[in-house]
Design a protein around this nucleic acid. Sequence first.
RNA 1: GGCGCGUUGGUCAAGGGGUUAAGACGCCUCCCUUUCACGGAGGAAUCACGGGUUCGAUUCCCGUACGUGCUACCA
Length: 509
Amino acid sequence: MLNKIRVRFAPSPTGGLHLGGVRTVLYNYLYARKYGGDFVVRIEDTDQTRYVAGAEQYIFECLEWCGLTPDESPLREGEYGPYRQSERKPMYRAYAEQLINDGYAYYAFDTPEELEKMRDDFKTAENPSPQYDNKIRMQMRNSLTLPAEEVQQLLGNNTRHVIRIKMPVGETIAFNDMIHQEVRFDSSLVDDKVLLKADGMPTYHLAVVVDDYLMKITHAFRGEEWLSSAPVHVSLWKYLFGLDKMPQWAHLPLIMGPSGKLSKRDGAKYGFPVFAMNWTDPKTNELTEGFKERGFLPEAFINLLAVLGWNDGTEQEIFSMEELIEKFSIDRVHKAGAKFDFEKAKWFNHEWIKRSTANRLAPLVIAVFAAQGISNIGEAYLLKVIDLVKDRCILLPDFYLQAAYFFETPITYDEASVKPKWDHGKRDYFESLIVKLKALNTFSLENIEDVFKNLATEKNIKLGELQMIYRVMLVGSKMGPGVFVITEAIGKDETIHRIEKALESFSTF
RNA sequence: GGCGCGUUGGUCAAGGGGUUAAGACGCCUCCCUUUCACGGAGGAAUCACGGGUUCGAUUCCCGUACGUGCUACCA
């Protein structure tokens, strides 16, 4: 029955979508695409206290920007829906009751206060965080310790209760992870995790197993922070559906910040984004910057994420999505976590900008200029300018820094560079240059260069100094592509205008 | 504290019993350009430690150290 690969990703709508989350989706997606399977997204909105309105929509906008649109998702109902856990609520209780009937779970009536008291009572220097496990469950108020009639009465009175898994004693729970190979746990050391909460909602542990079964998931990739709770999930599979139906697990290495698992805090602290797109928390109004808004190309973002913890064994570092799908393999995913390096991230974006066509970049560059108040740019001219400056742009906003002078006459000049070289001879040269340029019929690169150089020879002035001054006249500073290329691009009238304006400005020297 | 996972330059990493231990980012030097980049040439910098096994260990095994994750009616 399970002959089709179905991988799923389950984001929790508790805030932004960070790097690790996107990479998990990416690896899921690559695997599904590579082997022709379905890519399913299910939303984990079981914890209403942490649920943030709007986050769900935001997550799918991020996925769309990254080019990771799922085949089945809450936004696109499929045959295994609903995909939102809150809408699947009725399904979970039955499975939890089944576990109780089979002796693999029990009702627990302990109040939060009683749990706190237990943790306090059993806390010692050697055991700072006591667990609700086989060693203490017989001292708590649950259907294992209470008389059957009392349990029935409590249930009849709708007393608040949870359902906990009854972890076995002295068994070895082992499973084969696609990345870590065999991982083993001693069942006695695993605690009796809550499966069904007092509000009737499942915890992640129950939900993930039930949903994966019902949705016929064959492969599940998730972050390594889940490895510790894998024995609970394996046990549930064993008790509920059989180990043979359990999906293949892959626990992906964590993406680390300068200290510990990469967090939103790290971004704020070190000045780089950690979310795919801008995220404003509606509760606090706090804005967290995204890679998109920082000026990353989605191609670069996907690329840098893909190779953070995986490589194809060759020296290749730049991969398109198509290449990733073709070359991705789970056995080349690293075991160890990787520290995120923003400098390298920027390098990827630079590479992608250099490799992108002007047409690809144009709409993004238009947006950058619009944000700076420059609009109504002619298309052909824009494309030409993009090709001229894209080599020196690392992030998208750099296009404004690197190309504004193509659209605006400079207001200030790098006087420190010009002043020492400025004299009557130079002034005379540029006044003559205006006359010569005006006389040009064809304002071509070649003609401009000829006029400029011949005049320099005629006036017997060193070409280098003239070029530098000329550049400052046109650009305002010492940057940009060749001066004659710029001259041709901005055109005869604008060139003459800029020389005249600069001449006026330099008259105070 | 317990349990899990991990450990090749500052970072990402290839390699995996005998190698001059790839490559990339970043850094430094030089060339190109009388601009800023791009590009090119070079440089500094690495197998956590201790025991085994072996003719030989960065590679295999065991410890230790260190890092990291989990240890909630959060995911």
